[in-house]
Amino acid sequence: MNRVLVTGGVRCGKSSHAEGLLRGLEGVAYVTPGYPADPTTDAEWAARVARHRLARPADWTTVETVDVAAALREASGPTLVDCVGTWMTRQLDAVGWDTPRPEATALIEERIADLAAAVAAHPGPIVMVTNEVGWGVVSEHASGRLFADLLGRANQALGAVVDDVVLMVAGRAVRL
């Protein structure tokens, strides 16, 4: 296993499976593409993040950053990114959810290409977790459609540079 993309729906076991792929390896960098959890603004989310950290091996390092490509370029050992859907949310936060679609798409597609290049160049094992958003209803909101379109493009770009793609369904892994 060198580069793996783990995908699936909400609460299907993606993160657990991804962590299991790296268990036993020392010095894993766990990259979380978001902002640090703040218990004053979202106590439930902060508690969830704390539980996840406690469940990880003690020698794993958590890296909280929106610039995942840079974090991958800095990491030389085993790395887990959880998750690309959160990364995409942060990209849209940065460009503005109401930015006209062509401009937002162009900016974020550059970032998708940069992320895929960083994954391809990563020297150690890497596991990326992402979401499948295209299996449900098409959003009535332009922002929801933009998110789904861009995350789908990111998933395709990452799928093209990894060695294996795993689809999680009801806690079971299906290798694609």
Rank of each mutant, 00 (worst) to 15 (best):
residue 97 W to T: 08
residue 79 T to K: 01
residue 63 V to G: 11
residue 97 W to K: 06
residue 31 V to N: 03
residue 67 D to L: 07
residue 37 A to Y: 08
residue 95 V to H: 10
residue 58 A to S: 15
residue 75 A to Q: 14
residue 40 T to C: 03
residue 100 P to R: 01
residue 59 D to V: 06
residue 38 D to G: 00
residue 68 V to N: 07
residue 33 P to A: 12
residue 48 R to I: 03
residue 91 Q to V: 00
residue 20 G to T: 08
residue 70 A to Q: 13
residue 92 L to Q: 00
residue 96 G to D: 02
residue 72 L to C: 08
residue 47 A to L: 11
residue 74 E to K: 04
residue 38 D to A: 01
residue 24 G to H: 03
residue 24 G to N: 02
residue 89 T to P: 07
residue 91 Q to W: 00
residue 46 A to F: 09
residue 40 T to A: 14
residue 36 P to W: 03
residue 78 P to S: 01
residue 85 G to N: 10
residue 40 T to G: 05
residue 45 W to G: 09
residue 41 T to F: 10
residue 88 M to G: 03
residue 74 E to P: 00
residue 44 E to Q: 14
residue 80 L to T: 03
residue 94 A to I: 00
residue 99 T to V: 13
residue 62 T to H: 13
residue 25 L to Y: 05
residue 33 P to W: 09
residue 22 L to R: 04
residue 90 R to T: 10
residue 57 P to C: 10
residue 24 G to F: 03
residue 27 G to N: 03
residue 41 T to D: 07
residue 96 G to S: 05
residue 53 R to Q: 15
residue 74 E to D: 15
residue 97 W to Q: 07
residue 80 L to C: 06
residue 82 D to F: 05
residue 52 H to V: 01
residue 63 V to A: 12
residue 80 L to N: 02
residue 81 V to A: 07
residue 66 V to C: 12
residue 78 P to W: 02
residue 21 L to A: 06
residue 101 R to N: 04
residue 89 T to Y: 08
residue 90 R to E: 14
residue 95 V to P: 05
residue 89 T to I: 05
residue 65 T to L: 14
residue 56 R to D: 11
residue 55 A to Q: 15
residue 37 A to W: 04
residue 44 E to F: 07
residue 47 A to E: 15
residue 33 P to G: 12
residue 98 D to G: 07
residue 48 R to L: 11
residue 46 A to W: 10
residue 59 D to S: 11
residue 100 P to F: 01
residue 79 T to F: 10
residue 60 W to K: 00
residue 40 T to D: 15
residue 31 V to E: 09
residue 57 P to T: 09
residue 60 W to V: 02
residue 68 V to D: 13
residue 82 D to A: 09
residue 90 R to W: 02
residue 89 T to E: 12
residue 81 V to N: 06
residue 45 W to N: 05
residue 78 P to L: 01
residue 83 C to P: 09
residue 92 L to V: 00
residue 46 A to R: 04
residue 87 W to V: 05
residue 71 A to K: 03
residue 36 P to D: 07
